[in-house]
């Protein structure tokens, strides 16, 4: 998908509204905010924000991500991943830093990679 560079500060480049349904590969170079339903694949070279109303059934790749909605699929994050208190993740996570807020749900395995991308340890959680 295309890239836009001159957005108002703080505005995500791609926004999937709450009542929008997407099927396929949502691939972009900018920030992505998802409040709707996505099935397929999500990939961005920047930040991904999955809102509380979002339902994602897709493999996810991003630099940093915050998840407040439901995600079913494998998640690969280069930097930090935050699962918010309303967030629910079912799948395997690879990231450098992981934070799960109280109330956040995570079912799967998490692999913590260093900033260089090398895997340092692997833990299983339920």
């Amino acid at each position: 998908m295309g890239k836009r560079e001159d957005y108002e500060t703080g505005a995500p480049e791609t926004i999937v509204g709450a009542s929008v349904k997407i099927e396929g590969d949502l691939i972009g170079d900018g920030d992505i905010l998802i409040d709707g339903t996505v099935s397929g694949k999500i990939k961005t070279n920047k930040n991904l924000n999955i809102g509380p109303t979002a339902k994602v059934d897709a493999d996810v790749e991003a630099v940093n991500a915050s998840i407040a909605g439901m995600v079913k699929g494998d998640i690969k994050i280069k930097g930090a991943l935050i699962i918010q208190e309303t967030g629910k993740v079912e799948g395997n996570i690879t990231c450098s830093r992981l934070a799960i807020a109280e109330g956040g749900h995570f079912s799967g395995t998490s692999t913590m990679a260093e900033q260089t991308g090398e895997i340092s340890q692997s833990v299983e959680e339920e």
Binding site: R4, Y7, E8, A11, S19, V20, G24, D25, G36
Partner: peptide, 29 residues
């Protein structure tokens, strides 16, 4: 879009923009 994904919704309005006046708009498009 771009042969990659399908967007489905019930819309009140929809636009495909090449250029527009951004006066008073939240996002520069």
């Amino acid at each position: 879009l771009d042969g990659h994904f399908t967007v489905m919704t019930e819309a009140l309005g929809a636009q495909i923009i090449n250029s527009r006046s951004n006066k008073g708009c939240r996002v520069k498009l």
